[in-house]
């Protein structure tokens, strides 16, 4: 017995695929001049050594090392994250590109002896009692790829520690991930403790068992259904949007 699958299902991913390859689409976004073009391509391909090689050439030609972060590395990475947001490339490509870009940033910092100004600071953590951290790893990588400074508190982070970090770091946003229903309860505690301290910072929560209904039960919570929502949310905060506007945008259910 067999079946004609076209009668019972549709592979929408095959149907929707663009005619152009991701490589071709990325190349359309590269600058015309060298070594910028090579740096962009090396970021897209996740080739750390080639990124550094291109940066060396730029610095040798007189470029300011720290300025190269904003002029070459961040826009090169944006080509990658835009293609990911459009559903054209896969997450592992972004991860490898982010690794290459971060290697480039480290190189520029070494060369200049100074640090770049990040777009903003985000504190990331996994809920107390929960050690499942791959979601947080993805969130942190996407935020860094978008130019944000990430204070990564790791996994199984006690409520006290999150609150203390928020007080010390004064982030523009907090992220919390949890896989289990019993551990996500810590998010509510963090919310209450921050409000007691008079801190009103957007707290993006997501992960396995976390849902919008639960996140809506505490004031600072904004539900992040996808990891990719983290940089989008940070961008909105940077653009001056408040808690209610974030909820309007990301609470889709």
């Amino acid at each position: 017995m067999d079946v004609d699958p076209s009668k019972i299902l549709i592979r929408y991913n095959v149907q929707k695929e663009k005619a152009q390859t991701p490589e071709e689409l990325a190349a359309e976004q590269y600058p015309k001049t060298e070594p910028a073009k090579s740096v962009y391509r090396a970021i897209f391909e996740g080739e750390e050594d080639d990124v550094v090689e291109g940066l060396k050439k730029a610095i040798d030609a007189g470029a300011n090392a720290i300025k190269l972060i904003d002029d070459m590395l961040m826009p090169g990475m944006k080509v990658v994250t835009d293609l990911y947001d459009e559903g054209i490339i896969f997450l592992p490509n972004v991860m490898m590109s982010a690794d290459a870009m971060l290697a480039g940033i480290e190189f520029c910092k070494e060369k200049s002896g100074s640090a770049p100004t990040p777009k903003g600071k985000v504190v990331c953590h996994v809920a107390e009692g929960d050690v499942h951290d791959i979601g947080k790893t993805i969130v942190a990588a996407l935020l860094r790829a978008a130019g944000y400074e990430v204070v990564d508190l790791g996994r199984d982070v006690p409520v006290d520690e999150v609150v203390a970090a928020v007080k010390a770091e004064k982030p523009m946003m907090i992220t919390g991930t949890a896989l289990m229903t019993t551990t996500m309860y810590a998010f509510k505690e963090i919310n209450d403790r921050l409000l007691e301290a008079g801190i009103k910072v957007p707290f993006q929560c997501g992960g396995g068992a976390v849902n919008q209904d639960f996140v809506e039960t505490y004031e600072l919570g904004v539900y992040g259904e996808e990891a990719a929502h983290a940089p989008q949310m940070a961008d909105m905060i940077l653009a001056g949007k408040g808690l209610e506007q974030l909820k309007d945008n990301f609470h889709m259910h």
Partner: peptide, 16 residues
Amino acid sequence: NTAMFIAGGLLDKNLA
């Protein structure tokens, strides 16, 4: 299952 969940649905782009 981590791989399966990251891979997600047909239109997700997190893992082939």
